[in-house]
Amino acid sequence: MITLENVSVAYGTGARRVLAASDVSLHVTPGEAFGLVGESGSGKSTVLRAVAGLIAHAEGRIVLAGQEMGRRRSTATRKMVQMVFQDPYGSLHPNQTVDQILSMPVAIHRLGDADRRVATALREVGLGREHRFRYPHQLSGGQRQRVAIARALILQPRILLLDEPTSALDVSVQAEILNLLTRLRRDHGLTMLMVSHDLAVIAHLCERIGVMSRGELLELTTADALASGTVTHPYTKQLLRSNQGFDPSSVDIDATPAA
């Protein structure tokens, strides 16, 4: 469903050229949930944005549902791939009601029957009629993220991209959103590509996981391997250790912080 071959993204030119992602190749089968994990600056979000088509100058091949993606995406391909952003405060237009936000994609793709579609989408993400005409500032963080998910789903995409969808949320709300995503994936047969810095979150939702650091895909592993600790790359091992909570004995206090 998603195939990346040697995808590279660079910013700047000449001596100031920075490779945000270099030669990333991976393959996600239909209905699968694939996770990319790494720290900030690892390039995981860059890869996701390249798949989304938000980075026009990405090099390499990106094939989605058998179609090779070019520089410009048609409206039909846009409909196939949707994304949920990290910040539920920044990803909804502050001056539009939930109704307006959800109606826009319906209008763009001339799907018709906007009223029913919006109502269905809201019901599907667990929001009631009372939320329909509220502004984002009248909603909690979790409710906003539900609206963002509804906005992505209303186009009935085949691929859902998730950029740290729960990292701005409280623990209890995170569980609700993760459960919602699990259910939607099952009900709609969605293929998911998720990015997160949280190993536990990514291993909860995804079967296969890629570990990224400094723009490179270091290791392809599985949630089971992470759980049992049978990972090979030293960086993955280090991430796994850090995830187990604070342990003064394992911290290299003098190590230079990564830029």
Binding site: V171, S172, Q174, A175, E176, L178, N179, T182, L199, A200, V201, A203, H204, A223, L226, A227, S228, L240, N243
Partner: peptide, 20 residues
């Protein structure tokens, strides 16, 4: 207890996380 249960855990994968 609800908060602790709602946290996804690496070694303990559940299909549905108990919601608070």
């Amino acid at each position: 207890r609800g908060l602790l249960a709602a946290l996804p855990e690496l070694g303990h994968r559940r299909l549905v996380l108990p919601q608070l």
